[in-house]
Nucleic acid binder design. Structure first.
Length: 361
DNA sequence: AAAATGCGCAACCGCAGGTGC
DNA sequence: AGCACCTGCGGTTGCGCATTT
């Protein structure tokens, strides 16, 4: 374009915040004469500002019909709808919001609404569910929990064999890694508790533990997956844990993971499918807690270390219940080095591929 | 209490479209 | 057709205040 910026010819003009005196001059001039030629206006009004600055000040601040204050819910929804329709056409959006300026709407969008949408898992530009940034990680985390609840690993029968358990452990390791990468974004998975579904008092053989004899006939055993690994629920004492996995999770995150409702826990039979209702979503999942007909028993203060060859329990003293990132990283290295991890990845990738629908809601 | 950090918002800047000569 | 001018728009900046460390 063959022209110089308007302010080139306004060398020496004042910039920055406007003084009350300047506002008064501008307002008085426009009230008396109206506005038309912004370039000549400053001179005529006795202002040492460029025309552009005067226009901006008037349009965004001094205009008598400017509406100030918080945006109402109605205004917000209008903005969202119009933005979805028009994109960043702030002036056009402003046309539909009397008293609001394009600048104000733009600022409000950038400082408030963008965040809101992001927190809702919506891409503020496309208005579609987010598919970039952290969402894959979040999705993975959710899929993980859903898949575990659905028993989608290990030949569709999660607790049927050791391979499945190893898969579970590996996936839990993945989850821990994700938590390290994005500690705020990845919630704890704390979605099932064997004790709460287990009506069986009999000791059973632990299918993967050399110390398989259950020392307690009626222990408060629970299989928990949390930040520090699969650990027994040592605190619940048969109080069913229906902890929503979003507890402790900031309110700006994605919808909740699968949790198990009281009813389903009471009525579910091990190894069978059940329907759980969580947060308005109905999901089908297999109740965990058993390996086939066997109850998983874990000592009340032990934890499971992830090692494909020696999947075993760590006993108190060597327990890793509060393992830090370095422990996880060590496990992670082993995991990556391990050839058998391939199948785990395969299951995982199959599960998370677009063609599958692991999360049935 | 002071420094660091985060946040909101007014204002600036550069570009593009429209218009007249 | 080409140029100059004006206006409007959207992205970005920077200041001041609030909050956190």
């Amino acid at each position: 374009m063959g022209r110089s910026p308007c302010c080139d010819q306004d060398k020496g003009v004042k910039k920055g915040p406007w003084l009350q005196e300047e506002d008064d001059k501008l307002t008085a001039y426009i009230n008396d004469n109206g506005y038309g030629n912004w370039r000549s206006l400053p001179k005529l009004a006795g202002l040492n500002r460029c025309g552009k600055s005067c226009r901006l000040r008037w349009m965004n601040y001094l205009r008598p019909d400017i509406r100030r204050g918080n945006f109402s819910d109605e205004e917000e929804s209008t903005i969202v709808r119009l933005h979805a329709l028009l994109g960043n056409k702030w002036s056009k959006i402003a046309c539909h919001l009397p008293g609001r300026t394009d600048n104000e709407i733009k600022n409000y969008w950038n400082t408030h609404m963008r965040k809101k949408l992001l927190q809702m898992g919506i891409d503020p530009m496309t208005h579609e569910p987010r598919t970039n940034d952290l969402s894959p990680i979040l999705d993975v985390s959710q899929m993980l929990a859903a898949a575990i609840n659905n028993g989608q690993f290990g030949n569709n029968n999660l607790f049927n064999n050791n391979t499945a358990l190893e898969d579970l452990l590996k996936l839990q390791l993945i989850h821990k890694m994700l938590q390290i990468i994005t500690p705020k974004a990845i919630p704890n998975i704390n979605c099932f508790n064997a004790s709460s579904v287990n009506p069986k008092p009999e000791p059973v053989v632990n299918s993967f533990n050399t110390n398989s004899v259950n020392p307690k006939p009626n222990p408060p055993v629970g299989l928990f997956i949390n930040q520090s690994g699969i650990t027994p629920d040592a605190t619940s004492d048969f109080i069913p844990s229906y902890e929503n996995v979003w507890d402790g999770f900031e309110d700006n995150q994605l919808p909740g993971l699968v949790t198990v409702s009281q009813d389903s826990l009471n009525t579910a039979k091990p190894g069978t499918s059940t329907t759980t209702e969580v947060n308005d979503h109905t999901r089908t999942g297999m109740m965990p807690g058993y390996y086939g007909d066997q109850l998983l028993e874990i000592p009340s203060s032990g934890s499971i270390s992830v090692s494909p060859e020696t999947t075993s329990l760590n006993h108190p003293g060597t327990a890793q219940q509060s393992s830090g990132s370095s422990d996880v990283l060590e496990d992670w290295e082993k995991f990556l080095d391990d050839e058998t991890s391939d199948s785990c990845w395969k299951s995982f990738l199959d599960l998370t591929s677009p063609t599958s629908s692991p999360v049935p809601w």
